[in-house]
Design a protein around this nucleic acid. Structure first.
Length: 294
DNA sequence: CTGCGGTCCTGAAGGC
DNA sequence: TGCCTTCAGGACCGCA
């Protein structure tokens, strides 16, 4: 599922691909996915692509902005004319790592298609239909959007996500620590995968009450969150089991190769050889090593 | 304020 | 084989 590193990867790639292009068409295949008036964005040029937490902001001319949340199964795939058909599949040309097979678009999960002036297209695919695109009229005042107004500091930014701030929010709650670091109002951008991985790296059990962490543990957990998010961005995100997340080319990320506990219930802990356990916290799958994490 | 559970949605997996 | 039930999961919403 797309979390901060996946959305940041998509942001950088879209910023490179879309900046300067003019939107000429919006095709809405699932009405609930696109909220707002598409006529307000048609004819406008992309000035840049930003991100806040897990939300993408495609900024357009005249102060209009498209906000996009991929939720669980959203993908943004960008296609231009550098494709050719072979055996009903498409192959991407001029890839450094050699051509790779990608599906034809639109597919059965395509909910919105954005067409640009150079004949390229951006496909919003979303199996579960939880994701959305919203038209914002005042991007300079993104606080107008409830989803943006309440967000905590960016979990990848060591300045606003300071040690003092982290200590403060942890000492105020006795909720399980994993729920706190996944709470977007307290810390923005961490989802289930990176919460599990950061807690493993910091050797802290996910069900520990937040206010039971000592000063060294708090420091260690903050460093783990910052470090893992940065490494995940360097690896262009995690394309795990349900295969939902893709880069805008359709390629997978590679951070799934570095996962230690997420999705590995019953398998050996990579550190101690014990068995990774799965519990439920806040109704979400939670993975940890009972030996390594205290 | 906190905490809990329902809701959205689809496909995979399990039961019989 | 095939139908039916269960479940995952980010964020919101309503209720106790």
């Amino acid at each position: 599922m797309p979390e901060l590193p996946e959305v940041e990867t998509i942001r950088m790639q879209l910023n490179q691909a879309l900046t300067g292009l003019k939107i000429v068409e919006i095709e809405v295949l699932n009405a609930k996915t696109f909220q707002g008036d598409k006529n307000q964005v048609i004819g406008r040029q992309v000035s840049g692509v930003k991100r806040r937490a897990k939300i993408l902001l495609i900024e357009l001319s005249r102060g209009i902005c498209l906000a996009i949340h991929l939720k669980l199964t959203g993908q943004l795939i960008y296609r231009n004319s550098k494709f050719k058909i072979r055996n009903s599949k498409l192959l991407l040309k001029d890839q450094k790592s050699g051509p790779f097979e990608i599906d034809e678009l639109p597919n059965k999960y395509t909910r919105v298609v954005v067409g640009f002036g150079d004949n390229s297209s951006l496909y919003f695919n979303d199996l579960r239909k939880f994701g959305w695109i919203k038209v914002l009229k005042n991007p300079g005042e993104c606080s107008n959007l409830p989803e943006l107004a309440k967000l905590g500091p960016e979990a990848i930014d060591e300045k606003t996500f300071s040690l003092d701030y982290f200590k403060d929010i942890l000492t105020r709650s006795k909720k399980p620590i994993k729920l706190i670091i996944m709470d977007q109002e307290k810390l923005a951008g961490v989802g289930n995968i990176y919460a599990n991985e950061a807690l493993f790296a910091a050797k802290i059990r996910p069900d520990r009450p937040a206010n039971s962490l000592g000063p060294e543990e708090i420091k260690e957990l903050r460093n783990s969150i910052l470090g893992i998010l940065k490494k995940a961005v360097e690896n262009k995100g995690t394309s795990d089991r349900d295969e939902a997340y893709r880069q805008i080319s359709g390629e997978k990320g590679s951070f799934q190769n570095y996962l230690q506990v997420y999705g590995r219930a019953g398998q050996k802990c990579p550190k101690c050889g014990g068995v990774v356990r799965r519990i439920a916290l806040g109704g979400r799958g939670t993975f940890y090593c009972p030996t390594c994490q205290k």
